[in-house]
């Protein structure tokens, strides 16, 4: 991923509407993001675009993750 693309993604992760996401996503970027394949990184970019409540409910397990592309990333987000 190009530097500018990563930094844009980073800004969109560290400045969310919900504190829960600020913390979870910042941690994920620092600890797990690099371990993703290029394809998974693009899936995460897509996930970071989700509405805050939808994404948080997915991470906190209040909503089931039905998209198989998201599932491994959600698992990492929950762990980190």
């Amino acid at each position: 991923m190009e530097r500018a693309d990563y930094e844009r993604l980073r800004w969109r992760c560290i400045r969310r509407a919900l504190l829960e996401l600020d913390i979870s996503l910042t941690r994920f970027l620092d600890e797990d993001f690099e371990s993703l394949s290029e394809e998974q990184k693009q899936v995460f970019v897509e996930m970071a675009d989700m509405e805050d409540h939808d994404l948080w409910y997915l991470i906190s397990g209040q909503e089931e993750c039905t998209d198989p592309r998201y599932a491994p990333i959600v698992a990492l987000l929950r762990k980190s």
Binding site: R12, R15, R16, A17, L18, L19, E51, D52, H53
Partner: peptide, 12 residues
């Protein structure tokens, strides 16, 4: 805005 409008803290 520093972020997309519907990502402002009013959401919380």
């Amino acid at each position: 805005s520093k972020v997309f409008p519907t990502r402002s803290h009013t959401v919380a």
